[in-house]
């Protein structure tokens, strides 16, 4: 019995760590070409200070919306994405670093003359919320 409970406990702990599909639904795409490049972060430190994302994915754009599915364990995440219209793999900027290609953050968070912060962009992912909508602008 003790062993069974222990095994159940291990399963209970392990279950949340199992990855599940989270669908990011991007809308508001105005130029039907290129690709959406998306980076998912799981820490404030990495998101706010230019650290490495947990996962990055790219999906080609054909219409005004795309969906990107990422397999993630339930947890707290934030996303940075941009529309790579010219297909050079980089977010186009002017000489002062102002974005020249459309971009967005999770929660449709907006920045204050800079990228949105983790506190505004972070959201919880679990089995009950398998979809996150983001408007590119």
């Amino acid at each position: 019995m003790f062993r069974l409970l222990a095994a159940a406990a291990i399963l209970a702990c392990a279950a949340p760590a199992a990855a599940a599909p989270l669908t990011f639904a991007f809308t508001g795409i105005e130029t039907p070409k290129g690709a959406i490049l998306m980076s998912v972060y799981d820490s404030e430190e990495a998101f706010d200070r230019g650290g490495k994302p947990l996962v990055s994915q790219m999906v080609a754009v054909a219409g005004t919306s795309v969906e990107i599915v990422a397999d993630l364990p339930p947890g707290r995440y934030a996303v940075k994405a941009f529309h790579d219209i010219d297909g050079d793999g980089k977010m186009g900027t002017n000489p002062f670093g102002i974005p020249l290609e459309p971009f967005a953050f999770s929660n449709d968070a907006v920045g204050d003359m800079g990228p949105a912060k983790w506190t505004a962009a972070a959201f919880d992912f679990d089995a009950a919320t398998p979809r996150h909508a983001i408007k590119i602008r």
Partner: peptide, 8 residues
């Protein structure tokens, strides 16, 4: 509140 500013 909630004013999108992506460039000046």
């Amino acid at each position: 509140p909630d004013v999108p500013v992506s460039s000046s």
